[in-house]
Design a protein around this nucleic acid. Structure first.
Length: 650
RNA sequence: GCCUGGGUAGCUUAGCGGUAAAGCGCGUCCUUGGUAAGGACGAGACCCCGGGUUCAAAUCCCGGCCUAGGCUCCA
């Protein structure tokens, strides 16, 4: 709380840049009234230097302030915080023995960590009903100030170690703390909250899981209940629909349906098997990136999956990355499966003597790597033990950094465009565990920064998120559902060249250290495939679709003609199947749509006689009486252009 | 790694101490179909693995493996 004895003027800055001089200790609400009485009346909460606070919060020093009203973006966050309290109230009505820990709002809703109670999905449904009743009761939410001492004794009586922990850490120095009350419920809380539970229009509990108290492994494991809330029922429904859609697009589900890949128990966790359909997609992705590499002067190399431990010791992986490595012994020697391709590529570089004239040297490899991730982290194709990086390593002079990084960014932008993916850019800086001097890091980071700025690219800085050998520029994909995924990366490395004694001869006839750049365009094939599956909902662009054309003979008698047509398309390299099951035409079409095939060709007696085809696409459009040549040449164009949706019938 | 659910036919799931079920898929047959599910019959299961309790275990208990969600970590 504020120091009431402190006086004097302070300056608050409003979002439009204007400033107000106010008495020290003035509250957010008072500032709002100072701007206008209407705004004062509408004030729900405030944002002080970026922190969401109760409107009664006194301002102690010069601050940037934003008034939160019902029309503010931050209002939803306040509402959800209140929704967390509504959940807690409902929980306590049903389970008086439950102990509350913390219940903050999140980007998607809220959660509340609780102890001393086990809940399954039926219990959740009951609590949700109770919560809805509380919303309807439209209980007003009141804030009260309670002495620190009194708060402690309250939670000692209730035997709630979590609230006590909060009082003894975050609030240790406060003379008094805030409680929020609604009906019979009260909770230690910093706020802010809306004025009444009735403001919640839509309320839902989503799932339960577990979380450690304060996120630390050694602490108690608590039950975490996730929920969300909106101003209106309609917005909630929209959200739930989007969630459902995301579930239906889950790459594990689509991967199963389309027979793309599997991760059977017997082959081990995180070790996916690609079926012919999945590999067909991967093969196209590989061919595409290979062609980009070839255009950009990369030389293709290949390295084995394991190396002697000596290499990993020299590269620093053994020291910094060993926990994530599969290490095994053969006789007296120790080997490690490669978690990265770089030391192998650097070693290839080192096998020759280089002149400054020959740099940059660019190596590429679609290299399989192995990382022993924590078991609980493995998930479909998004976290696996074995994955393939579309890896590239560049060895260059320091005066070539700008140009090479810019060149890589061009490749990345081409890829993002091809797949119609939105993206965000982040600069990740030196992590706690790293090799190389501060000076080297500073230098590398400022070089990357200047490239981003020269190119006028918006980016965020992610402190401490770099690789152990250098800082990086990370691109995050945003898919069709607005979710973000890791994507392309460009990593600058002044350390590995040092550790592996990389050299080239300069113009001065002296030996120099090259700079290394690690880069990946997709990131990993596994994760990229996952993003594509979910982004396209399995409806792949023609060039990627495992089955590009399905031929549907109207009757069994038309199979002969179907085979002729199939052969002709296959000669041009198309992946074609014939539906040979003795089904009705309607059934065959239904199946074709379910299987997400871009184009179906219907061939019956009419087509056979006229030597034409009827074309039906994934969007349920259809035209008859098409010459096969006409369709085929369109297909070739659609494939070469890597167009994302079948457009023959546009 | 930790917590909480789950593992039953190729797939999706029901059954939860007493003879293992359904839908889809698959096979055979009838139907030879014209634009989003034609019909009949049939095959198909070490009920995740190992221990235990019980007259009797898919079902209850213990351990392991895998998996989902989350926590802590990363492409």
């Amino acid at each position: 709380m504020s120091d009431a004895t402190a006086t004097g003027e302070i300056v608050v800055t409003l979002p439009d840049g204007s400033t107000m001089d106010v008495e020290r200790g003035t509250t957010v609400e008072e500032v709002a009234y100072g701007i206008g009485s209407g705004l004062g009346d509408d004030t729900v909460a405030g944002v002080l230097d970026g922190d969401l606070v109760d409107k009664a919060t006194p301002i102690d020093s010069d601050s940037e302030i934003e008034i939160v009203t019902e029309s503010s973006e931050a209002y939803l966050r306040v509402l959800r915080h209140s929704a967390a309290h509504v959940f807690a109230q409902a929980l306590e009505r049903r389970y008086p023995e439950a102990k509350l820990a913390i219940g903050p709002p999140t980007d998607e809703g809220f959660y509340y960590d609780i102890a001393n109670v086990d809940l399954d999905s039926d219990d959740l449904a009951e609590i949700e009903t109770e919560a809805q009743a509380i919303v309807e009761e439209d209980l007003s939410i009141e804030r009260s100030e309670v002495s620190h001492e009194k708060a402690i004794s309250k939670y000692e009586d209730e035997n709630n170690p979590y609230k006590l922990d909060i009082l003894e850490t975050e609030a240790a120095d406060a003379e008094s703390v805030w409680f929020y009350e609604q009906g019979e419920f009260e909770d230690l809380c910093r706020g802010p909250h809306v004025a009444s539970t009735g403001e919640i229009g839509g309320f839902a509990l989503l799932e339960t899981s577990a979380a450690y108290w304060r996120g630390e492994e050694d602490n108690d494991s608590l039950t975490r209940v996730y929920g969300t809330a909106f101003e209106s029922e309609g917005e909630l429904e929209e959200y739930l629909e989007r969630r459902q859609e995301a579930k239906e697009r889950d790459h594990r589900r689509i991967g199963q349906e389309m027979d793309l890949f599997s991760i059977p128990e017997i082959t081990g966790p995180g070790l996916p098997l690609y079926h012919p359909n999945g590999k067909a997609i991967l093969q196209q992705l590989e061919d595409y990136v290979d062609s980009l590499n070839a255009e950009r002067g990369y030389d293709v190399v290949e390295t084995p999956h394991a190396f002697r431990t000596e290499l990993w010791k020299k590269s620093g992986h053994y020291e910094n990355y060993r926990d994530d490595m599969f290490v095994f012994e053969v006789g007296d020697d120790e080997f490690g499966l490669k978690p990265m391709n770089c030391p192998g590529h650097a070693t290839i570089f080192n096998e020759s003597a280089w002149s400054y004239r020959e740099l940059p040297v660019r190596y590429s490899e679609n290299g399989k790597v192995y990382r022993k991730e924590q078991r609980g982290e493995l998930s479909g194709l998004s976290r696996v033990w074995a994955f393939t990086i579309d890896d590239g390593h560049l060895f260059l002079r320091s005066d070539q950094i700008d140009m090479e990084v810019a060149g890589i960014m061009e490749m990345i932008f081409e890829i993002l465009e091809t797949f119609e993916l939105d993206y965000e850019v982040a600069l990740a800086t030196q992590p706690d565990k790293s090799v190389g001097s501060e000076e080297i890091w500073e230098n590398a980071q400022s070089q990357l920064k200047s490239v981003l700025e020269d190119q006028d690219i918006d980016y965020e800085i992610e402190e401490g998120d770099g690789a152990f050998y250098g800082p990086k520029i990370d691109f995050g994909f945003e898919d069709a559902l607005g979710r973000e995924w890791d994507g392309p990366t460009i990593q600058l490395d002044f350390n590995m060249p040092e550790r592996l004694d990389l050299e080239y001869t300069g113009e001065d006839n002296e030996s120099h250290r090259p700079v290394m750049i690690h880069r990946a365009l997709y990131g990993s094939y596994e994760r990229f495939l996952m993003v594509l599956i979910e982004h396209f909902d399995g409806k792949f662009p023609l060039w990627l679709a495992p089955e590009q054309v399905r031929i549907l003979p109207v009757a069994d008698d038309n199979i002969g003609y179907a085979e002729e047509v199939a052969n002709q398309l296959e000669e041009s390299g198309f992946r074609v199947d014939i539906e040979r099951r003795s089904w009705t035409v309607g059934r065959k079409i239904r199946q074709g749509h379910d299987d997400r095939v871009p184009y179906m060709l219907l061939l019956g007696d009419d087509e056979e006689e006229a030597e034409t085809v009827s074309v039906r696409d994934r969007a349920e459009r259809e035209t008859g009486d098409i010459e096969l040549e006409e369709f085929q040449s369109h297909l070739e164009g659609e494939r070469e252009g890597k167009r994302t949706t079948p457009d023959f019938l546009d």
